[in-house]
Simulated scan of single mutants.
Amino acid sequence: MSCSTSRKSLSKAACLRIQKELMEWEASPPPGFKHKVSDDLQSWVVEVVGAPGTLYASETYQLQLDFPENYPMEAPQVIFLHPAPMHPHIYSNGHICLDILYDSWTAAMTVSSICVSILSMLSSSPAKQRPANDKRYVRNCRFGRSPKETRWLFHDEKV
């Protein structure tokens, strides 16, 4: 897969990093995840299966990761495709309130570390429910607003 197939231009460093991560992923994907192969290096779809013994056991969801041109200096945009799991930090439009996707991102993080964090977040949920302000938030995002345009408040350390 080459960088020339991407719809936006990736920096050479971003292209090399994503190719390296893809090769590592194909050799050893995180448990519970499967990359759905496509020709687009800049946008991945990843299947996640809920961990055994959790509220989401055996349920399958899809994550879409869109890499910015300066990845890994900037986090990819990560959303759940419809239908998103019912979770206190996942909005019905698929946006995820998770600090590593925004404020706590570092260039040392990878697609695998993002996936493991998301699965951990799902696994630790005490209830299947939407965030309290889901309807209002989704209404405000109606016109294609990216979750990266949201000013997230991270305050729940339990889930």
Score class of each variant (00 low, 15 high):
32 G>T: 07
36 K>E: 15
127 A>S: 14
124 S>Q: 12
25 W>R: 01
83 P>W: 05
104 S>G: 00
119 L>W: 00
118 I>Q: 01
31 P>K: 01
55 L>T: 01
130 R>P: 02
38 S>K: 00
98 L>N: 01
1 M>V: 12
110 T>I: 14
152 W>A: 03
130 R>I: 13
150 T>V: 14
63 L>Y: 04
70 N>T: 08
75 A>P: 12
41 L>R: 02
33 F>W: 06
75 A>C: 08
5 T>Y: 07
40 D>A: 09
112 S>D: 13
37 V>G: 00
143 F>V: 04
101 L>A: 05
150 T>S: 09
2 S>H: 12
94 G>W: 07
71 Y>K: 00
73 M>C: 10
71 Y>N: 02
63 L>C: 02
73 M>N: 13
3 C>H: 01
96 I>R: 07
138 V>K: 02
37 V>L: 11
141 C>Q: 15
50 G>F: 10
63 L>R: 05
131 P>E: 01
132 A>H: 10
153 L>T: 08
124 S>L: 15
13 A>N: 13
61 Y>M: 07
38 S>T: 13
112 S>F: 09
148 K>L: 11
67 F>Y: 04
33 F>M: 11
9 S>A: 11
137 Y>C: 05
35 H>R: 12
26 E>H: 13
34 K>T: 06
75 A>M: 08
146 S>P: 05
124 S>T: 14
64 Q>K: 15
46 V>N: 03
158 K>F: 08
17 R>I: 00
24 E>N: 11
102 Y>P: 02
23 M>N: 09
66 D>Y: 04
67 F>Q: 03
7 R>H: 12
151 R>W: 09
103 D>Q: 07
39 D>F: 09
21 E>H: 09
137 Y>G: 00
97 C>Q: 07
92 S>F: 09
77 Q>S: 15
95 H>T: 10
156 D>T: 06
78 V>G: 06
82 H>M: 05
29 P>G: 04
76 P>H: 10
86 M>E: 15
119 L>A: 15
148 K>A: 10
73 M>P: 00
48 V>G: 09
107 A>W: 04
29 P>Y: 00
39 D>C: 08
119 L>S: 15
72 P>S: 09
39 D>S: 14
72 P>T: 06
140 N>E: 14
97 C>F: 03
14 A>I: 04
114 I>W: 06
121 M>F: 04
92 S>G: 10
89 H>W: 02
137 Y>H: 12
64 Q>T: 08
9 S>W: 07
152 W>I: 01
108 A>R: 11
7 R>S: 11
59 E>P: 00
143 F>H: 13
70 N>P: 01
65 L>Y: 04
129 Q>F: 05
1 M>D: 11
76 P>C: 06
29 P>T: 02
26 E>K: 15
110 T>M: 10
